[in-house]
Amino acid sequence: MQHLYEPNLPTVFFYVHHHGAGHITRAELLITKLQNSYNVVVLYGDLNVKIALNKVCKRSIFEKLPSKWAGQSAVQRSYNTAFEGIEYSEAPLERSITFNLLAQQYKPVLFISDVSAELTIMARSIGLPVLMQRHSGDISGDPTQVFAYECATKLYAPYPKQLETPHYSYFNKTHYLGFISKYTGCESATNTDFGSCITLLMTDAQSAALIARTLIKYTEHVEVIGCQGEAIEGVTYKGKVSNIDQAISANVVVSSGGNNAVSQLLSLGKKLIVIPENRPYQEQDEKARMLAKNNLAVHLPFSAFLQHNNAQIEAALVNVRKTQTNKTQIINATEQFTSEFVELVKEVAIES
């Protein structure tokens, strides 16, 4: 460990959540940039985070936090009760002790939370400033999230300000970094006429088959990227791919509302129909509504396919042609994105 540690540099803690590709994708970029000015101790709960980040963040130190869920990976939650599901047991106690001992050992000048409400609160309780990632969606009904937002010194949002929900209460302490995409400046491999093909980006095979079976009624060909699935005439499955810019054949893409997927597809100039997945705080629903409000995409609920609402589906396929993407207003260059983040870190961190 010692050879990774630069004694003349201040140290920051960076917690990276394992759920969703966006957390790790952002962390790769931000930690790589941060390492020029800081020792970065990556806190994680899932080994996959370390495996992914260790490939690119060569000078980072990795420390595993015990799970706060006693004997299980998570619990069913309603997101309306403070510290919901955390039992009176040794599991959260061990997690808290580990966090505090690590803080005592490394003496960080900042805790970056991407994203844990409970660790944000814990960090502030021991005198650490916190830079917390802003979750999309409405967190106002979850007391733990609300208190974490109150505790955070500042928040950063990995999306443009115009996509923020109008009822959000923390505009003044949130810095909007904009979308970022590894495909910024890339040309898409689109090779079909508008409307002759639709690309469906989806990892769940059952949902993909249901949607593809409906979409094929309105186009000559549907290609599904992200999974293999049921054989349907006119539908081909490409499975998981490493680069969607080369895999997508269509101008029109139907996708979930994940931050990573939306930013990448908009950076490629795709006409986007967003079918939100069920997420805490209606995260993807809120994003889809704001994308539609700004004429960047069409919001199409999954219920339209379950209820065979052909009128709603047909309207979405017509309206998606009218969407407009001004990339300069919503997509940030990688260097600009990371530089703004580092300046935010310097602003919030304790002076060493």
Rank of each mutant, 00 (worst) to 15 (best):
residue 277 E to P: 01
residue 39 N to Q: 03
residue 19 H to E: 14
residue 318 V to G: 06
residue 327 K to V: 10
residue 141 G to Y: 06
residue 42 V to N: 01
residue 292 A to F: 11
residue 255 S to I: 12
residue 39 N to L: 11
residue 301 P to M: 06
residue 264 Q to G: 03
residue 234 G to V: 02
residue 74 A to K: 10
residue 227 C to K: 03
residue 170 Y to D: 08
residue 170 Y to I: 07
residue 352 S to I: 13
residue 183 Y to S: 03
residue 233 E to Q: 11
residue 168 Y to D: 06
residue 180 I to D: 11
residue 182 K to P: 07
residue 178 G to I: 02
residue 21 A to P: 06
residue 269 G to R: 00
residue 266 L to K: 13
residue 207 S to G: 08
residue 184 T to M: 11
residue 109 V to G: 01
residue 277 E to W: 06
residue 189 A to L: 05
residue 120 T to E: 00
residue 345 V to D: 00
residue 159 Y to C: 10
residue 309 N to Q: 11
residue 183 Y to G: 01
residue 138 D to H: 12
residue 235 V to E: 05
residue 197 C to T: 10
residue 158 P to G: 00
residue 192 T to K: 12
residue 345 V to Y: 00
residue 295 N to T: 14
residue 314 E to M: 14
residue 86 I to H: 12
residue 153 T to L: 03
residue 14 F to N: 01
residue 201 L to T: 08
residue 238 K to I: 02
residue 163 L to A: 10
residue 18 H to A: 13
residue 124 R to V: 14
residue 1 M to K: 11
residue 140 S to R: 01
residue 143 P to E: 00
residue 195 G to P: 07
residue 101 L to A: 02
residue 165 T to Q: 08
residue 76 Q to P: 13
residue 134 R to H: 06
residue 249 S to E: 14
residue 112 I to N: 13
residue 232 I to M: 10
residue 280 P to Y: 07
residue 338 T to S: 09
residue 77 R to A: 13
residue 194 F to E: 04
residue 350 I to S: 14
residue 323 T to S: 14
residue 175 H to P: 15
residue 167 H to K: 13
residue 162 Q to W: 01
